[in-house]
């Protein structure tokens, strides 16, 4: 369980995240939704210790993220941000293999290598293992980074807009992969999503943010309603139930 209590981030005078208190479950898929500038990415960066918080506390299974050993934390929680720029020239396999670093410390065992191969094939990158990342399309590169994070084999996997650059087919495959990781390996996958319908169809829990505050938290059926969409996104939309899922129709 990730316990977040009263976390705030301010730059100068303006608060980007304001006193968010929540708890993220130890397994299942959790989606964080909200309009641009709601503080979703900042929130995710803070609970994954990438960004220092101005105030508040975050514990992961009881370990305070600020004082816990970085190495122990890397075996428990992994994070992938939106923009991943590399100066080094790496192949897909090199990158994915780095996911084993917390376990192998740069000396991979055969077990580590098996993890690498499994992650590569989970993400359908088998034909691309020897390609350099700068030779790949945006979607392929995104999948390579996700393979690295999955390869880290942590209980908590935090991903900031993992569907960026992915086509429909790969986006669906990605969400199914997260679902499987949660169901079969009992991992906790926390996603920042822009596509509310993906959030609605694949999550166990949805957290809605607006203006740096947590405004709604609950199961998809409770959160995805016309009234909530209006309040969170300031958008009039129709919500219909399709095959038991709430689907938001906002294109027309």
């Amino acid at each position: 369980m990730i316990e977040v209590s009263n976390v705030t981030k301010s730059y100068g005078g303006s608060e980007v995240v304001r006193g968010v208190t929540s708890s993220l479950p130890a397994n299942g898929v959790t989606s964080i939704i909200g309009p641009n500038g709601a503080g979703k990415s900042t929130f995710l960066s803070m609970i994954s210790r990438l960004l220092p918080m101005s105030s508040g506390q975050v514990t992961v299974d009881g370990m305070d993220i600020l004082t816990a050993d970085g190495d122990a934390m890397a075996k428990k929680l992994s994070i992938l941000r939106q923009d991943n720029h590399l100066t080094a020239r790496l192949t897909v396999r090199d990158l994915v293999a780095f996911g084993r670093y917390p376990h192998s410390k740069g000396r991979p065992t055969s077990e580590d290598l098996a993890h690498v191969e499994r992650s590569i094939s989970y993400l359908g990158l088998d034909n691309l293992t020897h390609r350099f990342l700068d030779e790949l399309s945006g979607g392929q590169r995104q999948r390579a980074f996700i393979a690295m994070v999955l390869c880290q084999d942590t209980k908590y996997v935090l991903l900031d807009e993992p569907l960026n650059n992915l086509d429909m087919k790969h986006a669906v495959a990605m969400m199914q992969l997260f679902r499987r990781a949660a169901d079969e390996l009992s991992k906790s996958v926390v996603l920042v999503l822009h596509d509310i319908n993906f959030a609605s169809c694949y999550s166990d829990l949805i957290i809605a943010m607006r203006d740096g505050k947590l405004v709604r938290q609950g199961a998809p059926a409770e959160i995805v309603t016309t009234a909530n969409i209006q309040e969170v996104f300031d958008l009039e939309a129709r919500v219909e139930i399709v095959e038991g899922r709430s689907i938001v129709h906002f294109y027309l």
Binding site: R49, D71, P102
Partner: peptide, 21 residues
């Protein structure tokens, strides 16, 4: 530190994610 340098080259955020101080 030779292996840590390889991780550092991936950038601050990835390095922190992989447990490097």
């Amino acid at each position: 530190l030779r292996n840590v340098f390889d991780v550092m080259a991936l950038g601050r955020e990835t390095a922190i994610n992989l447990g490097v101080n």
